[in-house]
């Protein structure tokens, strides 16, 4: 009898301990005050706790009681289907960043630097185990998006350039969209791709072709193929179907505003593509149209091999934008 009591007590204790281990408290130290702050903190604490509970129990994430948009739950869900993850800290205090529209109006908030550790289901996982996430909120404090963040060094550099060029707010928007774009590959989110590519988008892919010259020395030449939106997305669908996990990394991001058309931005970045059986590296150039800043569109996406000369990398001047 005594034994049974001890075992039951131990089981009860361990249940409480496990629950306590899952619980995450989130707080903003600065950048926001009042009821919206409380709402965001509450939603974030509940979401991070729900993620830990789902990871511990092996069940799906329970969003009950959390103010979160469908877009964000879909984003988490797609990530969750590929790899489980867990929040590292149980007590998180962070800055609240404001996301502003071009007229200076606050259109949302963001929390960055939330450390997570990936818990791969099998050996097909090819990303880093330690990652950081960022959570976006709408002006009322509801969670509107959830992404794995890019490297902090790049973030710092781009924000500094933004201060210098006086377009830090727009750069923050662009970075957010670039992060979403990268996550769409990782999450195999074809719907996001459908939305973000303009219907008349131009997709250019370069391939290094080595030809044998008469003096037997091989000559490298880059051949380009162009595709329309649907052709590119059909190929992407096949890739998504055939790979359990895709990891995409964006590095060395440069942002340039179009001189004559201020709503157009050229984003150049180094893309690393990793799946279990294939990986490559290339230079990706994207033309973003921010005419509708809440729904920006990709007008051009190019991929070039990294061995290409700097002077041959596509820039805004290579494309005639109407």
């Amino acid at each position: 009898m005594k034994k049974v009591f001890v075992i039951a007590f131990a089981a009860l204790l361990s249940t409480f301990a496990l629950r306590a281990q899952d619980e995450v408290l989130f707080e903003f130290s600065d950048g926001i005050e009042g009821s919206v702050k409380q709402t965001m903190e509450q939603n974030t604490s509940r979401l991070l706790t729900a993620i830990n509970q789902a990871e511990s129990s092996g069940k799906d994430i329970n969003y009950r009681g959390i103010g979160i948009d469908d877009l964000a739950t879909q984003s988490i869900g797609m990530m969750w289907n590929n790899v489980k993850f867990r929040v590292v800290d149980d007590d998180i205090v962070e800055h609240c960043l404001r996301i502003k529209a071009s007229n200076g109006r606050v259109i949302g908030y963001q929390a960055r630097n939330i450390a997570v550790v990936m818990k791969p289901i099998d050996d097909s996982y090819v990303g880093d185990l330690n990652q950081e996430i960022c959570i976006n909120f709408d002006p009322s404090g509801r969670i509107s998006d959830f992404n794995i963040t890019m490297g902090l060094q790049q973030y710092v550099r781009l924000m500094k350039e933004g201060e210098r060029l006086n377009d830090a707010d727009r750069r923050m928007q662009i970075l957010h969209w670039v992060e979403q774009f990268r996550n769409a590959y990782v999450q195999k989110d074809i719907r996001f791709m459908e939305d973000v590519f303009s219907d008349d988008a131009l997709i250019v892919t370069g391939k290094v072709v080595k030809r044998q010259h008469t003096d037997m020395k091989p000559i490298s030449k880059v051949e380009y193929t162009t595709q329309g939106k649907q052709q590119y997305l059909n190929g992407l669908r096949r890739v998504f179907r055939n790979n359990a996990y895709i990891n995409v990394k964006f590095d060395d991001i440069q942002i340039v505003r179009h001189g004559a058309k201020p709503n157009y931005y050229g984003v150049t970045l180094k893309q690393g593509w990793f799946t279990k059986n294939y990986s490559d590296e290339g230079i990706v150039f994207i033309v973003w149209d921010f005419t509708d800043e809440f729904h920006p569109k990709i007008m051009v996406r190019t991929w070039q091999p990294t061995e290409i000369d700097d002077s041959d990398i596509f820039t805004l001047s290579n494309f005639k934008l109407n």
Binding site: E27, S29, I92, V93, E94, N113, A115, N130, L152, Q153
Partner: peptide, 16 residues
């Protein structure tokens, strides 16, 4: 976290 919560400091962090 104690420092972050205090309004007397400016802070930043990075994990690399």
């Amino acid at each position: 976290n104690k420092i972050k919560r205090s309004s007397s400091y400016l802070y930043a962090e990075a994990t690399m």
